[in-house]
Design a binder for these strands. Structure first.
Lengths: 112, 112
DNA sequence: TCCTTGTATCTACAATGTAGAAATACGGAG
DNA sequence: CTCCGTATTTCTACATTGTAGATACAAGGA
């Protein structure tokens, strides 16, 4: 039995946000996407440190925008989901699906 | 916007295991339930420390078996999901469902 | 008494999550 | 040219969660 893989809850959320944002995923938009979909406040620091960790594990990659883009402020760092990231996401969702099997998400769980 | 709630990935898994096990949930059975459903090795220490944390947050409760039960070894500590735990579970699953909305779990995520 | 089996507790550490302040970079106002 | 505002990333420090395994406890049987 494999041990010690699977994503943290927030890591999974961040990866999913990347997919929705496609090629417009950078710090601030990622933060907003998560806040919009989760209804939960998220600090910018939380987003970046999670992304950094994910990158160091090879699940996402990042590239800086070149100067050709009309912009204010620093160069944006765009993030992209790597194939390994998609795999992790699938593994996690399968595990969770197995744990939920037979239960109805959203219904009364207290005596199922 | 609320901040700082929601369950860790493993916490969620443990809570779900409790529900499946109903009134037979104690350390060893919980461990096995998770291993069976996740296909992943889990240490007994991981299980207990998570349960302890969950109990201190009021999401689960535990009671020791009385001596009337024919048994070997220590008294079992049975765990039960508290209403607060069910709430947390529902919140977490809703957030995740929102993050997945529009994507197909299990399919190719790389360019969705 | 000592061994085996089933169980829980403890300890120490690694990984993840969180917040906010500081730094960087550009454009525009004066 | 300097200063200010805005958009963005980076840094730092700390809190919470995740993990492993050793140790303690309890009962029954050899």
């Amino acid at each position: 039995m494999p041990k010690g893989d699977f994503l943290g809850a927030f890591e999974e959320i961040v990866l999913l946000a990347l997919i929705h944002l496609r090629d417009n995923a950078y710090g601030m938009t990622i933060r907003r996407e998560i806040e919009d979909r989760s209804g939960r406040a998220v600090s910018i620091g939380a987003v970046y440190s999670t992304l950094d960790r994910l990158e160091s594990k090879g699940l996402v990659s990042s590239t800086y925008s070149d100067g050709s883009e009309a912009r204010r402020g620093r160069a944006k760092r765009y993030f992209e989901l790597e194939p390994e990231g998609a795999k992790s996401l699938n593994r996690s969702s399968e595990i969770l699906a197995n744990m939920w099997r037979g239960l109805e998400p959203g219904s009364d769980l207290s005596k199922s």
